[in-house]
């Protein structure tokens, strides 16, 4: 199979077919079209360029090796989001193990334990200034990577809750809860830090 040069653009179905046939042009297009996106997601979850690059490489190799199992009615980008998120979280867990940190804060179902009391969702009004961007980044750093991944996919990548759930490999309601908890965590963190700064 050769690249369908007669058509002005290659459709996703053609690309998937080319990948399943292990065509060189399809691999080239896969990298050209999705490398930036995959790296961005991995970086936002891991917040480390080297680890993000490792996660990106693992994502593409995994997709290539398992392309035969991919259902052609699904969206390739959704699958890439899911693989990239899993690779990033896997690398994060591996990093924690190397550092001797406890990684058992997550249940078997992959849900975080209720670290935050649901009652705290009645907050004081949060006022952020332009210069508080650094605090927001610190809050993201302090957050569990699973909550961060949910926020990255939903808030920053602009995926719908359903797409976020698919990328995270969880139900939509579970995804909603993660996004919600991520927001509450960030809100609490920012409120506390702003109070410390003010006092």
């Amino acid at each position: 199979m050769t690249a369908p040069t007669m058509t002005p653009t290659i459709t996703e179905q053609e690309l998937i077919a080319g990948l399943k046939a292990h065509e060189a042009w399809a691999c080239e297009k896969l990298i050209a079209d999705y490398a930036e996106m995959v790296y961005r997601v991995c970086y936002r979850i891991l917040r480390d360029p080297q680890e993000a690059e490792d996660a990106m490489q693992e994502t593409f190799i995994t997709v290539y090796r398992h392309i035969d199992t991919f259902r052609e009615d699904a969206k390739l980008s959704s699958w890439l989001y899911r693989v990239a998120t899993n690779k990033a979280l896997s690398i994060h867990r591996s990093r924690q193990r190397k550092q001797g940190l406890n990684v058992s804060l997550e249940t078997e179902e992959g849900e975080e334990l209720p670290l935050i009391d649901e009652q705290v969702i009645m907050p004081e009004e949060l006022v952020l200034r332009e210069e508080d961007v650094q605090l927001v980044q610190e809050g993201l750093d302090a957050m569990s990577p699973k909550l961060r991944a949910a926020l990255v996919l939903y808030e920053l990548e602009g995926l719908s809750m359903k797409e976020t759930a698919q990328a995270l490999g969880i139900s939509e309601s579970a995804a909603k809860l993660r996004v919600h908890r991520g927001r509450i965590f960030l809100q609490q963190y920012l409120t506390q830090r702003l109070q410390e700064t003010a006092s």
Partner: peptide, 8 residues
């Protein structure tokens, strides 16, 4: 909005 601004 803060997340969008802080997105590195």
């Amino acid at each position: 909005q803060a997340l969008q601004r802080a997105a590195q």
